[in-house]
Amino acid sequence: MFFSTLVIGLVLGGTYALIALGLTIQYGIARIMNLAYGEITIAGAFFVFLLVSSMGLSPLLGLVLVVPLGFALSWLLYGIVFHPLVKRASHAGQLEIDSILVTFGLMFLAQGLFTMFFGSEFAGYSWLQTPVNLLGAKIAAGRVLGLLIAVLIGGGLWLAMQRTRWGVNLRAVANHPEFAPLVGINRNSAARVAFGLGGAIAAAGGAVMSMYQPFTAVDGGFLTMKALVIVIMGGVGNLGGALMAGLMIGVVEAYVSYAIDPGLTLAATYTIFLGVLLWRPKGLFA
């Protein structure tokens, strides 16, 4: 039981890590605190759910389609909503408050729309439920595939950020936003691309989540909260840190819900968060 709980936790943590990656990119590079982030994830999940349940398509096809859609939606959102706020803000603190408030509004708007179209019931589909034996733990094939996809996307992104010219540009904006323009980097377009990229990852995370777990129209808030905790734990903008922290949170949640009570998973997450804040506020891996 010890071992299978670990595997379940890692699978769960893989999705969390994937979702948190997008948020750490949005906050670290575009400097927008996006509290409507989880809503993009839920939008991705609903999109795949619709494709699978009403058109009978494969969830994997849904995943492929949802990534560019998530990117486009977030890219447009940055241009329409956040760019005017960035231009208006007199200092970083003002932008932070403005973006928190606006994304709150967007969170409500999205939750209201989801509830209007899909109702407040759980949505989900069954896919690859056949159990596979993974190191002694019996686990649904869909979950294992979800973990694999999360690792693939996360690893690919990490490589792209480390090894390509494009990744170097984005990291330059993240580390020294005021110096990046001096070496010819367009800060505004870098921020916009980063925000879009974050949205693409959020939507992909939602697609993966829908493959093994039912969800509701208002689950986005929880996802945002967990992703935020993971981002802070890993250090803002630190991709490797977010991956590690995401897996950790997943494992802790799995053990808490197995050993104590499934209703206490958020309490466990927050206890860890409190510990990190008191002990290492710059992140575990700083």
Binding site: V81, P84, L85, D98, L101, V102, F104, G105, L106, M107, F108, L109, A110, Q111, G112, L113, T115, M116
Partner: peptide
């Protein structure tokens, strides 16, 4: 009653802008 969240969200955005 069903559009409560949507209107609350719009009020938020409107205030900031």
């Amino acid at each position: 009653p069903d559009q409560n969240a949507i209107i609350l969200g719009l009020v938020f955005v409107a205030i900031v802008f």
